[in-house]
Simulated assay, not measured.
Amino acid sequence: MTTRRHFLRTTALAATLVAGCMLTGAAFAEEKIKIGFSQGTMNHPWRVAMVEGNKKYAAEHYRDVDFIVTDGNNDASKQVADVENLIAQGIKVLMISPLTEQALTPVVKEAMDAGIKVVTLDRKVNTPVTVHVGGENLPLGVGAGEFLAKKLNGKGAIIELQGTAGASATIDRNKGFAEAIAKYPDMKVVASQNCDYTRDKAVKFMEDMVQRFGPGQIQAVYAHNDEMALGAIQVLETAGRLNEVAVVGIDGQETAFEAVKQGKLAATFVYPFVAPEGIETAYKVAKGEQVPPTITLPTVSVTADNIAQMIGKGF
């Protein structure tokens, strides 16, 4: 009888310990900080670098974080649905790089109204957020315009390959460039197209442009990112006209650095892809730390003059 009682007590104790462990495990899981990252699109290397860089850093440094990433697939309505889903999952912080300002503004406001901290990366929305992290796009556009003005001696016909229509980066990169070349009456944008920051769309548009404008009628191409600049180079090289056109890009991907080194790309302007600064900032606000409303990351121009120092540092 004593042996049986001892067995029952031991079994009950073991069951209590197992249950306690299960409860402790559940409590530990519940204690994880949920941070959602809504990426607008993953259709080019800069966006991939942003996602992968933040994911890697979170995995290595924040064991107490449940980091959930979504891809809007270059579709604003899909990204809105992604954010709504993240809100429903009970995230504490929303990191978002919005595809366009207007489309994502209402759902970001919804998150803020629900008490969720919001960290915008690269692109902005038209409603207050906890903090914005990124480079400044307007000065990049100005820098590109000033670079081409110097290179072309203030005279030339330019094709502008714009990014996604309605994106804050596109608006500012266009505005800054326009402001810079406005000082030079003999510099004009003769054709412009939204190519969504993708190489394939830039290639299609540039193929039309080399048909429309004959040799000597285009002096420069200003692309809002390196992918589109590389697409322009591809078309101009095939047409045998790259030597007469100065191509400028933005972002700082390694393939663009190689093109600068080879003399195919006149310049690119490094635009930080906000990793790991994105997740670092989101973690701070999740922990209740004070952060400034805007965190501006540095940018740098890359030309033949400094390419030797930049090779190998692109994404």
Rank of each mutant, 00 (worst) to 15 (best):
I171D: 11
D172G: 07
R173I: 05
R173L: 11
N174C: 09
N174K: 13
N174Q: 14
K175I: 13
K175W: 11
G176D: 12
F177A: 04
E179R: 14
I181V: 15
A182S: 15
D186K: 14
V189I: 15
V189M: 08
V189Q: 05
V189S: 07
A191N: 11
S192H: 07
S192V: 00
Y197G: 00
T198S: 13
T198H: 10
R199T: 14
D200R: 11
V203L: 03
F205T: 07
D208H: 02
D208N: 14
F213D: 02
G214R: 05
G216I: 05
Q217S: 12
I218T: 05
I218L: 13
A220H: 04
A220W: 06
A223P: 06
A223Y: 07
H224K: 01
N225F: 10
D226E: 04
D226K: 07
E227L: 11
M228H: 04
M228G: 09
A229Y: 11
G231L: 11
T238F: 07
T238D: 10
A239K: 06
G240D: 06
L242F: 06
N243P: 11
N243Q: 15
E244A: 14
E244G: 12
V247M: 08
V248H: 08
G249V: 10
I250A: 09
I250T: 11
I250H: 03
D251W: 09
G252C: 06
G252K: 04
G252N: 06
G252I: 02
Q253W: 07
T255S: 15
A256Y: 06
A256T: 09
F257I: 09
F257V: 10
E258N: 13
E258A: 15
E258Q: 15
A259C: 14
V260E: 01
V260P: 03
G263R: 05
L265Y: 01
A267T: 04
A267P: 05
T268E: 03
T268F: 02
F269V: 08
F273N: 05
F273Y: 10
F273R: 01
F273T: 04
P276Y: 02
E280M: 07
A286T: 00
V291K: 02
V291N: 01
P293M: 11
I295L: 08
T296Q: 10
P298I: 11
V300P: 00
